[in-house]
Design a protein around this nucleic acid. Structure first.
Length: 489
RNA sequence: GGGUCGUUAGCUCAGUUGGCAGAGCACCGGCCUUUUAAGCCGGGGGUCGCAGGUUCGAUUCCUGCACGACCCA
């Protein structure tokens, strides 16, 4: 049992303490990362000595004991370096101490950089120090953790032992750094707005509810930062962005985690055409920085992000792909869909029509592999967007699809306070009719608009999905360090 | 919410047409001065996800539940 393996290690820990060794000391002075040693001494011929000393630290991943000599692999954040230990060089006492070590222990070691007879660059250990004793065994060395449940439940083990999983988190950091760098370069400032909100706004979604004890009132985890970011536009900040978590109380799938990372950016005096340009520039930079090219592969499909990206209106798309007339009144549209065998959930028949068009888009989005801006959405499902110039039934809004995923949503932001109130009232009617995802009226936001918000473009990116595409990850859980898992029984 | 599949040693996985539970890695003991999934000899380790049912006997068959994966809504 696991307890037995743990017990053996606890006994070793006890013996260390009895010998006056602190198994959890405070720091270790290292001179080289494993990769730095490879870089500096990689060309040493077999069976030679560099004459250089190095101090390394990391976790022991394998030990090969051969009697009076021992080989061990030490891994740090940069890579792997082999330790070579011989009883004569290390001395009997230290050699015996090393015999007590287990796979997974974290140690610091020092000695001369050498190559073995077979030519492997190694550290000939003169001395070592235990930096953290591991009480639990590592997963199997060859396969690592495979069981998806265990992988997510004990994610640190997964990230420690599965190289691909480990890589994704590094790539994620790099992508996010590129996004920040891009926006900072363009003069955006990073801001933080409330996660605890009295009225969850800015998106159509069901919120998580929580409670503030001292105020004795319910608060909601934000479903989007949008309304607060617009209030910062009112406040005179002209280019703002926020990168952070949103929370939506909805199902879990390969594309949905209840908490996910969004990047929202707002630029005064710009419209949704500018937002398209921004999206294209920013994402191309992320892809090029990570891959050095714009043609990448996602789950076996080629995704070509070369510019310019395709732009198509929602109506064109629906009419081209389904042969339907998106301008037709709702009953006519539904009966035409019925004739063509296009299924839809019953509640859509109650309207509004925009929801039906949105459903049709969902049916075909998996086919939008190359980057595609789908533009000009129905007004009734876009209560925060400005009407389209020349067509008051539509709004200036787009969603961006890449590799079949919706990765961004943007508008020319509605800044007319009276119209915004009308739109909220429309949403209230939908809510009254049973739509739990309908937007709620937010008087504080309306009051801010009444002070005047400059015309602006706003865009929100689904950061996790972007990371999925750029790291060829099949599930959103692969790109989140600790995705939500159920209660263990 | 519905369907399908899965859950066996710390890890990766076999297996039992219903009759003493298996391997590799890891662990423990022994040998070994050039290994790198080291090798050789010996050993320990299991509530077969949980709860019921059928049966002389259930890890195996049936039902329910939990957790997970995939598909559908």
């Amino acid at each position: 049992m696991a307890e037995e393996l743990v017990k053996v290690r606890q006994e070793k820990l006890q013996r260390l303490r009895e010998r006056g060794i602190d198994p959890y000391p405070y720091r270790f002075e290292r001179t080289h990362l494993a990769a730095e040693i490879k870089g500096r001494f990689g060309k040493l011929p077999p069976a030679s000595r560099s004459g250089e000393e190095a101090r390394v630290a990391g976790r022991i991943f394998s030990i090969r004991r051969m009697g009076r000599i021992t080989f061990a692999d030490l891994r740090d954040a940069s890579g792997r370096i082999q330790l070579f230990l011989s009883r004569p060089v290390l001395g009997d006492e230290a050699y015996e101490l090393f015999r007590e070590l287990d796979l997974g222990d974290i140690i610091g070691a020092w000695g001369e950089v050498i190559t073995t007879k077979t030519g492997e660059l190694s550290l000939e250990v003169r001395g070592f120090e235990i930096l953290a004793k591991a009480l639990r065994p590592l997963p199997e060395k060859w396969h690592g953790l495979r069981d998806p449940e265990k992988r997510y439940r004990y994610r640190e083990l997964d990230l420690l032992t599965n190289e691909k999983a480990h890589r994704v988190i590094l790539d994620r950091s790099r992508i996010i750094r590129t996004m920040r760098g891009f926006l900072e370069e363009r003069g955006f400032i990073e801001v933080e707005t409330p996660i605890l909100q009295p009225i969850p706004g800015g998106a159509a979604a069901r919120p998580f509810v929580t409670h503030h004890n001292a105020l004795d009132r319910d608060l909601y985890l934000r479903i989007a930062p949008e309304l607060y970011l617009k209030r910062l536009l009112v406040a005179g900040y002209e280019k703002v962005y926020e990168l952070g978590k949103n929370f939506r109380n909805e199902g879990i799938s390969t594309q949905h985690n209840p908490e996910f990372t969004a990047l929202e950016a707002y630029e005064a005096y710009a419209d949704y055409h500018d937002a398209m340009e921004l999206a294209e520039e920013m994402l191309c930079r992320c892809v090029e920085d990570l891959h050095g090219k714009l043609r990448i592969e996602y789950q076996g499909k080629e995704v070509d992000l070369s510019r310019p990206w395709r732009k198509v209106t929602l109506y064109e798309l629906i009419s081209d792909e389904f042969g339907l007339d998106p301008e037709a009144p709702l009953p006519e549209l539904l009966s035409e869909m019925g004739r063509r065998g296009i299924e839809y959930p019953e509640h859509l028949a109650r309207g509004p029509k925009g929801k039906v068009l949105e459903h049709l888009l969902e049916l075909l989005e998996e086919r939008l592999i190359g980057p595609t801006f789908v533009m000009d959405y129905p007004l009734d499902i876009s209560p925060l967007a400005k009407r389209k110039r020349g067509n008051p039934e539509l709004v200036e809004r787009f969603e961006l699809f890449i590799a079949g995923f919706e990765v961004a949503n943007a508008f020319s932001e509605l800044n007319d306070p009276e119209e915004q109130r009308e739109r909220f009232l429309m949403q209230e009617r939908l809510r009254a009719a049973g739509d739990e995802e309908a937007h709620r009226i937010d008087e504080t936001f309306l009051r801010a608009l009444e002070h005047g918000m400059p015309p602006a473009a706003g865009i929100g990116f689904g950061v996790d999905r972007i990371v999925m595409i750029l790291t060829d990850s099949p599930s959103i859980r692969e790109v989140i360090a600790f995705p939500l898992v159920g209660e263990r029984r």
